Simulated assay, not measured.
Amino acid sequence: MTIAIGEYGRYTAIRDWDMGDMDRRDLWPSPAEELSGVGRWMYEIAVRDGEGLLAEGISHLFGKAECPSCASVFTIADEYKAANCPILR
């Protein structure tokens, strides 16, 4: 599965080498008033600096996505954080 947030759209998809992105599912952005912590800080800085497109992308990054394979819904930033958390020993 791939997650795209950029000029080609905001979606999840199954990526195939020959066929490209298949079974696209739109991302659900987090409303600005529901952002907190780092997400809210990033969003507010982007808005303050007149970077509306970046702010919109941040709201998608901290929003929800649906897996094209199993239809489970998850928060993108939380899954990224969990997958990249250092191993504590």
Rank of each mutant, 00 (worst) to 15 (best):
residue 49 D to G: 06
residue 47 V to G: 05
residue 16 D to C: 13
residue 66 E to A: 14
residue 76 I to K: 04
residue 88 L to N: 08
residue 72 S to H: 07
residue 22 M to P: 01
residue 81 K to L: 15
residue 44 E to T: 12
residue 40 R to P: 05
residue 32 A to R: 07
residue 50 G to C: 08
residue 7 E to F: 10
residue 36 S to A: 15
residue 74 F to W: 08
residue 43 Y to C: 06
residue 57 G to P: 10
residue 42 M to N: 02
residue 55 A to Y: 01
residue 36 S to R: 09
residue 44 E to C: 05
residue 79 E to L: 11
residue 36 S to V: 14
residue 32 A to K: 02
residue 56 E to C: 08
residue 27 L to I: 08
residue 35 L to Q: 07
residue 11 Y to M: 03
residue 75 T to Y: 11
residue 6 G to I: 04
residue 30 S to G: 05
residue 67 C to A: 10
residue 22 M to T: 10
residue 75 T to G: 14
residue 1 M to I: 10
residue 62 F to K: 01
residue 24 R to I: 03
residue 77 A to N: 05
residue 38 V to P: 06
residue 13 A to F: 07
residue 52 G to C: 06
residue 44 E to I: 08
residue 36 S to T: 09
residue 14 I to A: 12
residue 89 R to E: 15
residue 57 G to Q: 00
residue 70 C to M: 06
residue 58 I to D: 00
residue 87 I to V: 13
residue 35 L to F: 04
residue 17 W to E: 15
residue 83 A to Y: 02
residue 80 Y to D: 08
residue 33 E to R: 12
residue 28 W to P: 11
residue 10 R to Q: 10
residue 85 C to E: 11
residue 87 I to R: 08
residue 11 Y to V: 01
residue 55 A to H: 00
residue 82 A to G: 10
residue 49 D to F: 04
residue 72 S to Q: 04
residue 66 E to L: 09
residue 32 A to Y: 03
residue 51 E to M: 13
residue 16 D to N: 15
residue 40 R to Q: 14
residue 79 E to F: 11
residue 72 S to E: 06
residue 65 A to T: 06
residue 24 R to F: 03
residue 16 D to H: 15
residue 14 I to M: 13
residue 8 Y to H: 14
residue 6 G to D: 06
residue 14 I to Q: 10
residue 19 M to W: 09
residue 25 R to K: 14
residue 28 W to N: 13
residue 65 A to N: 04
residue 40 R to H: 13
residue 65 A to W: 02
residue 8 Y to F: 11
residue 37 G to D: 03
residue 16 D to E: 13
residue 58 I to P: 01
residue 48 R to N: 14
residue 39 G to S: 04
residue 85 C to K: 13
residue 5 I to D: 03
residue 24 R to Q: 12
residue 8 Y to D: 11
residue 23 D to E: 15
residue 56 E to V: 08
residue 47 V to T: 13
residue 37 G to K: 01
residue 3 I to Q: 02
residue 67 C to I: 08
residue 42 M to D: 03
residue 58 I to A: 02
residue 89 R to T: 11
residue 58 I to H: 00
residue 62 F to T: 01
residue 30 S to D: 04
residue 16 D to V: 04
